[in-house]
Structures are given as structure tokens and as C-alpha cells.
Amino acid sequence: MEKNIYIMVVEDEPEVLDSIVRDIASFEEFFPIEMADTAEEAREIIRSILDDGKEIGLILCDHVLPGDNGVELLVEMQKNPETAETKKVLITGQAGLQETVRAVNEAELKHYIAKPWEKNELVQIVRDLLTNYVINHADSPLGYMAILDGEKIADFIRRGGSITDH
């Protein structure tokens, strides 16, 4: 299967970045993971992924970053039609109420994960969000049944999505 849907992880502390990527490594076979340690670098990577005709399904983003902060990046992605549909998650220990509210209101934040996180919790969130993403955006969500929420994808097909008898 063509791997068109990317996961973007933005985190400035190398150990934390490693640990996030390690926790969600099981998805990499279907969803290539790209890493960045600043919002600026993330922008460049996102640009090049989009220019290749691929899409960003999910972004896991720290808030406190050198330079532009995470919420800034998410709001900006929300405003760009090419990344508006990307599922956006904050992983942070330090986002204040005001910034979090902004992320919810202006970036349609899908989840707020407080550090330190549980691996199972993170995997579950990534699985749910990617499932929703492929159901709405992938040409054939069928191919993701084994790795994502198979029941939910099957139910989507039951409701007439994607394939019928022929």
C-alpha cells in the first residue's frame, strides 16, 4: 500500500522526542513518522510532505519550543486548508489555560496529553485519531483495518462507505 499519510512529532527535548516516537513505532509501517524539534523545522517538513502530494494525518506537538510555540503552529495549520483536517494533539506539561483554550478554539485540538503520559494511553489516542482520519480521507480505509480500529472501519463500510457488492 502507498504510504501517503504522515505522522508529525514536534518536540525539542531529544529524549522526550525519542520516547514518543518509540511509543508509537507500531504505526510507522503504515504511517511514516517525521520529527522536528522546532516549529520552524516542522513547517519546512510539512511543506515538503505536502509538496510531494502526501498528507499529514496527525501531529503530536509539544507546546514550549524554542522560537514559535506549539499552539502557534497548530493554529497556523488549522488556517491552512491543506492541514486543516490534520488531527492535532498537544503533548505538554506547560501549556497554560489561556493557550490551551486557544488551541481548542482555534486549532480544533483533538486531545491534550499531559506529560508524563502512559504509553497505552498515547497509542490508543493515536489509533482513534488516525482511524477517524482514514475513514474521512483515505481512498480505501479497508487497508488500515489491521493496524487501526478495525471495528470502526468495518462499521463505516457497513454504513455504505468505500465498497459495495459488485
Partner: peptide
């Protein structure tokens, strides 16, 4: 019903 929709529905039953 359609074979496909039936299968999809039954898959939601058998996965658990």
C-alpha cells in the same frame, strides 16, 4: 442485504 455490508457488520461482531 449486500454481501459486503453484511460482512462488514459481522466483522464488528467477530473482532471482539
Amino acid at each position: 442485504m449486500s454481501n459486503t455490508a453484511t460482512t462488514a457488520m459481522m466483522i464488528t461482531v467477530i473482532l471482539p
